[in-house]
């Protein structure tokens, strides 16, 4: 792992049918989603988004992530080379009924959003011990 070369992954622009009100492009954040015994964890890369500018919404089992960036007042700067686009982030996921929506926790650090979604008690694996008798 330590010697692994970084693979360049292109930022994906979102093609939305509805036009955004903000005149900035919209990107699809790269995510990791993993499931442990008692929670589903989502990690999303949203560089440029501070903790005040991220919104997480759950409605009808649909999880919506939105991140807005603050454009720097860099009007006097002349662009010499552009290899990536700067814009907002948007991504939606359909959640199963297995998430305890009241207990979702989110944290944003260094442009990475981590969402911990505990599983509802009913779906947690229960160990049943077989008694003798």
């Amino acid at each position: 792992m330590a010697e692994k070369e970084m693979q360049a992954r292109e930022k994906m622009e979102m093609k939305s049918p509805a036009e955004g009100t903000r005149d900035v492009p919209m990107y699809i954040p790269a995510v990791d989603i993993y499931e442990s015994e008692d929670a589903l964890v989502l990690v999303a890369d949203m560089p440029g988004v501070g903790s005040d500018n991220v919104s997480i919404e759950i409605r009808d089992n649909q999880l919506t992530l939105r991140g807005t960036i603050q454009l720097e007042p860099g009007d006097k700067e002349r662009l010499l080379l552009q290899e990536y686009g700067v814009g907002d982030y948007f991504r939606e996921f359909a959640l199963g009924r297995t998430i305890d929506q009241a207990k979702i926790e989110a944290s944003m650090k260094d442009g990475v959003l981590t969402l911990t979604m505990p599983k509802a008690d009913i779906v947690k694996p229960r160990k049943i011990t077989v008694k003798e008798g």
């Binding site: 970084m6 693979q7 360049a8 992954r9 292109e10 930022k11 994906m12 622009e13 093609k15 860099g74 006097k76 700067e77 002349r78 662009l79 010499l80 080379l81 552009q82 290899e83 990536y84 686009g85 700067v86």
Partner: peptide, 18 residues
């Protein structure tokens, strides 16, 4: 659906000047 910024190197950079 790709942006025209394809570079294939990491990290992608934006360079500007004033």
């Amino acid at each position: 659906g790709m942006s025209p910024f394809r570079v294939g190197v990491y990290p992608a950079v934006n360079v500007s000047e004033d």
